[in-house]
């Protein structure tokens, strides 16, 4: 099983050339997370990145509103906004913690206010996932989709359009396809050789959590 997975990633590696980034522009943590210095992490004590995730520049993670739990091999594209959603509850407004599973890719320019996102979910570019949406495992959201509030995307389905509606089913192989996609995206994201001067990840993390 593990062998075949490796073979696949090699095959895909040939198709996708590596993307090089300047080492000074990213913070690499011990668990393999690569977080751009130009991203905005609010309340980083509330943000959990399990490992091997990539956060690209311009992205805003709102940990100050509620807990934000992100699994491993999660790729968040440029200028995304990940913010926990809220709901009227007992007369006032309560924010929900937001959980994102493993092997999730979020395309550039998307706004994600979902309550929970399962594992192996693929979100395209410029999508808007409105408040309190639930995206189950192995689902696919096409680029430029606007999911209305409280939408539930069932497992192995494709959603797309404005407003986002059910468009079709996916084969069960989607689990492996998306897993490989996320892992290769992480693997091909490499520091360029000339980049130098990166500081230790711990001091920068503390800086982000300033107040």
């Amino acid at each position: 099983m593990a062998e075949t997975a490796d073979d696949w990633s090699l095959a895909l590696d040939l198709e996708a050339p590596p993307i090089y980034y300047n080492k000074a522009d990213y913070i690499q943590t011990a668990s393999g997370n690569k977080v751009s210095r130009n991203s905005v992490l609010c309340g980083s004590q509330n943000i959990t990145l399990v490992g091997n995730s990539v956060i690209k520049p311009g992205t805003v993670l709102r940990g100050d509103l509620q807990l934000l739990k992100i699994g491993k091999h999660v790729i968040v594209g440029e200028n995304c906004v990940l913010r926990p959603s809220h709901k009227k509850y007992k007369g006032s407004i309560a924010f929900f913690p937001m959980t994102i599973g493993d092997h999730v890719t979020v395309g550039a320019g998307s706004v994600v206010c979902a309550a929970s996102i399962g594992s192996c979910v693929n979100i395209g570019e410029n999508c808007i996932i409105s408040k309190r949406c639930i995206l189950k495992d192995n689902s696919l959201v096409l680029p430029d989709t606007i999911l209305p509030p409280d939408t539930i995307v069932p497992p192995l389905t494709v959603f797309g359009g404005n407003p986002g509606v059910y468009l079709g089913d996916l084969p069960e192989s989607q689990l492996f396809v998306q897993k490989q996609h996320a892992i290769t995206e992480y693997k091909r994201f490499l520091p360029s050789q000339k980049g130098a001067g990166a500081t230790s990840p711990k001091s920068t993390k503390a800086k982000a959590a300033s107040p």
Binding site: D64, L65, H86, F95
Partner: peptide, 16 residues
Amino acid sequence: SKFIEVLKETLPRCHH
């Protein structure tokens, strides 16, 4: 108005 009340409590915890 309701939302502002909540944000007024939440935001100063993590931001200057």
